[in-house]
């Protein structure tokens, strides 16, 4: 889905998910590793504050990824 949105719309797509190897195989170009499969953009087990902090950090990272000039599949770890 990620790859085809990017190909058809010619706009960058940042994918946030937990299992990086799968994002690599499905052809995502801007990859942001998520927290866990049931909560990719949150850390609810650590309480509401930490949860939101984590989410904000990941979304900011995804926005950064959308602005990054890349030539191949890239994992944004920070």
């Amino acid at each position: 889905m990620t790859r085809e949105i990017e190909r058809v719309a010619q706009i960058p797509v940042a994918q946030i998910a937990t299992i990086v190897p799968i994002m690599l195989t499905v052809g995502a170009n801007r990859i942001v590793p998520g927290v866990a499969i049931p909560h990719p953009v949150g850390n609810p087990e650590a309480g509401p504050e930490e949860d939101k902090k984590t989410r904000r950090k990941l979304v900011l990272r995804a926005l950064k990824a959308l602005q990054a000039d890349i030539s191949e599949q890239t994992i944004f770890e920070s």
């Binding site: 719309a9 706009i11 960058p12 797509v13 994918q15 946030i16 998910a17």
Partner: peptide, 10 residues
């Protein structure tokens, strides 16, 4: 006219 996408997967 969308410029970018954030896609989340589980």
């Amino acid at each position: 006219g969308v410029d970018g996408v954030i896609l989340t997967s589980t």
